[in-house]
Computed example of a mutant assay.
Amino acid sequence: MAKKPQLAADTRPWRDPGKKPFVRIRNVTKKFGDVAAVNDLSLDIYKGELFCLLGGSGSGKSTLLRMLAGFELPTSGTIEIDGQDMSQVPPYNRPVNMMFQSYALFPHMNVWDNIAYGLKRDHLPKDEIAARVAELLKLVKLDDYAARRPHQLSGGQRQRVALARALAKRPKLLLLDEPLGALDKKLREETQFELVKIQETLGVTFVVVTHDQEEAMSLATRIGVMNQGEIAMVGEPTEIYEFPNSRFVANFIGSANMFEGVVTEDEPDHVRIRSAELGSDIYVGHGVDCAPDQVLWYAIRPEKINLTRERPEGEANVVHGMVEDIGYLGDMSVYQVILDNGRRIRVTKTNVRRGDPDAIKWDEPVWCQWGDTSGSVLTN
């Protein structure tokens, strides 16, 4: 599920070197005792982005979010929001609001009062509060639920109430910690699109923390992949998936078959890699910045591999094996192929035809083949 393009390529602020970031994180470190939860991290986030911090448990993503909110202070480094240094600004004075994974709704208040709570605390005029709550109820499609209590709502509805409450004070920056984590898969997928539409409508900068790769790919204008307190890669979803910069990113985002090899031919327009792991040469149809005889890795996504009964043409990018297992997932089938040298690889195939009688079956001998620009060459 891909987020539809929002901006033409030449107007995306992160592609403009002269554009000023809305959030500037510079050399931020956060230590708990001797442990660095965030380590010398620098990151720019631009106005109007829906930016996802993606990482596993302990990667530092939630700690970074809490520092943006002001609930934690950096051990060293600086955080700026909209040009203002946040080091001495308490959480309640920051142009920021945070939506927690638990939603933290007041159970004794109805939907209307939950959304209005922060506005009442700020002593806004009653008519202004009423107008803003009505606007938000319409935005999150809960006009008819204003009088209900949280226990009378579904998980998806509670999530939207929490979002409306977080947006009520019109923050410049909204932080969302695993906002869809409590929803079931189908509702989560539906809500992802709703969240994107709301963000686009308001133009508020969102920073979302998630461990769910599909969620990050669906929501984000850009993704920051975190590992051990550091940013491993920042890029648009297509960049992160199609052009990973390391073995960690290639393995963390989606699924990848990874093979170690040695460069045997290095030309400006192509590279040939000999891989004992694969049992075949790999031909890459573009130049690679590497040294002669350098050991490197080649990552190929399962959907980029063609599975055939007949041997394809060519000597490189072709291996023979046998189908060991098949997983039917409805929209696609996942094939586990054991190669002649004993190595296993994963291949996926879209199920275009219903009940395809010609589909490759268990224990069939097969050839796996891919194009010369289908994979990524990784040097670390």
Rank of each mutant, 00 (worst) to 15 (best):
K3V: 02
K3A: 14
L7V: 13
P17C: 07
R24P: 00
R26G: 02
R26M: 01
N27F: 02
F32H: 03
V38G: 02
G55C: 07
S59V: 06
K61G: 10
R66W: 00
G70T: 08
G70I: 05
E80M: 13
I81F: 10
Q84S: 13
Q88V: 11
N93F: 05
Y103I: 03
V133F: 12
L136T: 07
R160C: 04
K169R: 15
R170F: 02
L173N: 10
L174Q: 01
P179D: 08
K186H: 11
L187A: 07
F193Y: 09
E200M: 11
L202K: 09
D212E: 11
D212M: 03
M217P: 05
I223H: 12
F243Q: 12
M258V: 15
F259D: 08
T264A: 12
H270G: 02
H270C: 14
E277V: 01
I282K: 00
V295Q: 14
I300Q: 00
I305Y: 09
G314H: 11
V323K: 01
D325R: 13
D325M: 13
M332I: 01
V334R: 13
L339N: 12
I345P: 06
R346M: 09
V352W: 10
K361Y: 03
D363H: 14
Q369S: 15
G371C: 11
